[in-house]
């Protein structure tokens, strides 16, 4: 409130006005809204609390008033940040050659284009195609391809180890393995063109998978028999969640090698592959419940 009313009242006094000024209207007293303090409440055991021990899904997280508890929100935001960071990461220049891979690239020119144009990520750039024809070993049983996919973080962190373990597991089964290649800005279907060019019986692409909450380090592997452009997802077998809290890489390498061997033996892949015949080797047994990684102290 300004002092204008008092100023004019003083002026009125000075000018000697005869009639008394009207009384001022008192300001109303506005009571402050009551402060409500909400205490965090964990859900009572209702079954879902027990279920929460077996999953990283957000079960039985309780509430504060009508909202999530602060630590739940912060944990969610931190996990989302991990996922965002993994998607935004890129394989460093020269990394592939330094780690013993033949460096290849899809037709994508930039990371943004990679996210927006899946079709370009499924075909090799002309110079990469030439390099593959010039330098890659011909007609292997299994062609292993490492790729960045949607998480370059996972590709760089655990890709080389998984590829090496997979190559060793294949050779142990008497399968020949082609020149290890690493493709930049690659989508799953790029394995069709690479596998066809080298004349592999089975192509395996190991790539960083679309990050979920808090899992930026997951790898997926897709296998296809008789790779050539035009193969569909129905022709592929895949394994996801290859990371320490999911399927550990050494165990995954054994199963992938068993799958590749089964494909060559049966001459097919995807829905045509009879998994019952290799059930003992590729079926997943009991896996202990995953532990949610705390990124924020409660």
């Amino acid at each position: 409130m300004s002092g204008t009313r008092a100023l004019i009242a003083a002026l009125r006094e000075r000018l000697g006005a005869a009639d008394p000024a009207p009384p001022r209207v008192p300001m109303p007293v506005v009571p402050a809204p009551p402060a409500r303090v909400y205490v965090p409440r964990r859900e009572p055991a209702r079954g879902d609390a027990g279920g929460a021990r077996h999953t990283t899904a957000l079960l039985a997280i309780g509430h504060v008033g009508t909202r999530y508890a602060t630590d739940v929100v912060l944990q969610f935001q931190a996990e989302l940040a991990v996922a965002h960071e993994a998607v935004a990461a890129e394989v460093p220049d020269g990394w592939a050659a330094d780690h013993g891979f033949l460096p290849l690239s899809s037709r994508v020119a930039s990371h943004r284009e990679f996210l927006l144009r899946p079709d370009l990520g499924r075909r090799l750039a002309p110079d990469s195609l030439q390099r593959l024809r010039d330098q890659a070993e011909r007609s292997p049983d299994v062609q292993i391809i490492l790729a960045d996919g949607l998480s370059a973080t996972a590709c760089v962190d655990s890709g080389p180890a998984l590829c090496a373990a997979l190559a060793a597991a294949c050779q142990q089964r008497g399968l020949s393995v082609g020149t290890p290649v690493c493709a930049r800005f690659a989508r799953v279907w790029l394995e069709d063109e690479i596998g066809h060019e080298v004349g592999a019986k089975v192509a395996v692409i190991v790539l960083g998978e679309r990050p979920g909450l808090g899992t930026g380090d997951g790898l997926s592997a897709y296998l296809v028999h008789g790779p050539q452009i035009g193969k569909t997802d129905g022709d592929r077998n895949m394994m996801s969640n290859i990371h320490e809290r999911g399927t550990p890489p050494p165990q995954a390498a054994e199963r992938l090698a068993a799958l590749a061997a089964a494909m060559i033996e049966q001459g097919t892949s995807g829905v045509g592959l009879d998994l019952a015949r290799v059930a003992g080797e590729v079926e997943r047994g009991y896996r202990p419940p995953q532990v949610r990684q705390r990124l924020v102290e409660p």
């Binding site: 409130m1 300004s2 002092g3 204008t4 009313r5 100023l7 004019i8 209207v25 300001m27």
Partner: peptide
């Protein structure tokens, strides 16, 4: 309600003014 307003400048509201600060 309590602050900004015009004021009667001639005692009959024939002339009003707004000398606000």
């Amino acid at each position: 309600a309590h602050d900004a307003c015009f004021y009667d400048a001639d005692g009959q509201r024939g002339i009003t003014m707004f000398p606000h600060v």
